Simulated assay, not measured.
Amino acid sequence: MTLRERNRMRTAADVETAALELFERHGYDRTTVEQIAARAGISSATFFRHFRAKEDVLFSGEDVSAGTLVALVAQRRDRRRTVAALADPVCRFAHRSVADPATDGQRLTHLVMTTPALEARSLRLRLRWEREIAAQLAREAGTDRPDLGHTLVAAVAVSCLTSALRAGHHTGASIAHLTRQAFACCTDLTC
């Protein structure tokens, strides 16, 4: 990695930290790009070289999270293409991405789940997770495209996770535990 790439990554991380602090303190809607840039010690122009809009700061890990989720699904021990077989990898994803105190996952999740202006972007991320899991299930079945069963199983698995995320930010309960509870309600669905 070049010095320029390291500097770019460090600047992006500084912006993410500044934005999260400001969003939590002042609210997402009342925080401006100019405030984020000033807090991160950069110009607004530099902000826009890294992010298209302030919501992109909160979803900067979207590619990594989707890749992590699909990798966990692909590595699962239970090779069936069922909702039950997806419970373990999706619960591990919930723990790693949301519950792990070493990440800002809990803070990000709370902010996204309580900010109406972020609902559309959150829904797009959820749909991406569904599409990518369905595509993984199709690959495992030896087909080029997901069928209805793959799509439905992926949608239910992601619904278990997102239902837990919505419930968890209200109750403070473990997201991984709530995700496992949601899967327990849905385990009979197969493709």
Rank of each mutant, 00 (worst) to 15 (best):
T2K: 12
L3C: 04
R6N: 10
R8Y: 04
M9A: 14
M9R: 15
T11K: 13
D14G: 09
V15S: 06
E16W: 01
A19N: 09
E21L: 09
Y28T: 10
V33E: 10
R39A: 15
G41H: 12
T46N: 10
R49W: 02
A53Q: 14
V57W: 01
G61P: 00
S65A: 13
A66H: 04
V70L: 01
V70E: 00
A71Y: 00
A71W: 01
A71E: 08
R76M: 03
R79Q: 13
R80P: 00
T82F: 00
L86F: 04
P89G: 07
C91N: 03
V98G: 01
P101N: 11
Q106E: 09
T109R: 11
L111I: 03
V112L: 02
M113K: 08
A117S: 15
R121M: 03
R126H: 06
E130Y: 00
R131Q: 08
I133G: 00
R139D: 05
T143C: 06
D147L: 04
T151R: 14
V153W: 02
A154M: 06
A155V: 06
C160L: 11
S163R: 14
S163C: 07
A176W: 03
A176G: 07
L178A: 11
T179A: 14
F183T: 10
A184R: 13
L189T: 13
C191N: 07
